[in-house]
Simulated assay, not measured.
Amino acid sequence: MFEFFGDVGGAIMAPLYFITSVILSGFHNLFGGIFGDDSGAAWALSIIGLTLVIRAALIPLFVKQIKSSRNMQLLQPKLKELRDKYGHDRERFAQEQMKLFKDTGTNPLASCLPLILQMPIFLSLFRLIDRAAHGETRGVLSQDQVDSLAQAKIFGARIADTFTGAEGESATAVRVLAGLLVIAMTATTFLTQRQLMTKNMPPDALKGQYAQQQKMLLYILPLVFAIGGIAFPIGVIIYWTTSNLWTMGQQFYVIRRNPAPGTPAAKAKEERDAHKRARKGLPEPESTGTTTTAVAAPSEAERRRQQPKKQSREQRKKGKGAPPRGSGRPAGGKPR
Rank of each mutant, 00 (worst) to 15 (best):
L74I: 12
Q76S: 14
Q76F: 05
P77T: 06
K78H: 02
K78S: 11
L79N: 04
L79C: 13
L79Q: 11
L79F: 01
K80F: 11
K80G: 15
E81I: 01
E81L: 07
L82N: 07
L82K: 00
L82R: 00
R83P: 06
R83V: 02
R83A: 13
D84H: 00
K85Q: 10
K85L: 07
K85C: 01
Y86R: 10
Y86I: 11
G87M: 04
G87L: 03
G87R: 01
H88D: 13
D89V: 04
D89L: 09
D89N: 06
D89W: 08
R90F: 08
R90H: 05
F93D: 01
F93L: 15
A94E: 14
A94M: 15
A94Q: 12
E96N: 07
Q97N: 11
Q97R: 11
Q97A: 05
Q97Y: 02
M98V: 15
M98S: 09
M98I: 15
L100V: 10
L100C: 04
F101M: 07
F101P: 12
D103G: 07
T104W: 09
T104P: 01
G105Y: 03
T106K: 08
P108H: 12
L109T: 02
L109D: 00
A110K: 05
A110L: 02
S111Q: 12
S111F: 08
C112A: 15
C112E: 00
C112S: 07
L113Y: 13
L113N: 01
L113G: 08
L113C: 10
P114N: 05
P114I: 12
L115R: 00
I116K: 00
I116P: 03
L117F: 09
L117I: 13
Q118L: 12
Q118A: 08
M119F: 15
M119K: 06
P120K: 06
I121P: 00
I121G: 04
F122A: 09
F122I: 05
L123F: 15
L123M: 11
S124L: 11
S124W: 01
L125F: 05
L125S: 07
F126P: 05
R127C: 06
L128Q: 07
L128Y: 09
D130N: 15
D130Q: 14
D130C: 00
D130K: 13
D130F: 06
A132I: 00
A133H: 14
H134N: 10
G135E: 04
G135L: 07
T137Q: 04
R138S: 12
R138D: 13
R138A: 14
G139P: 10
G139K: 12
G139L: 13
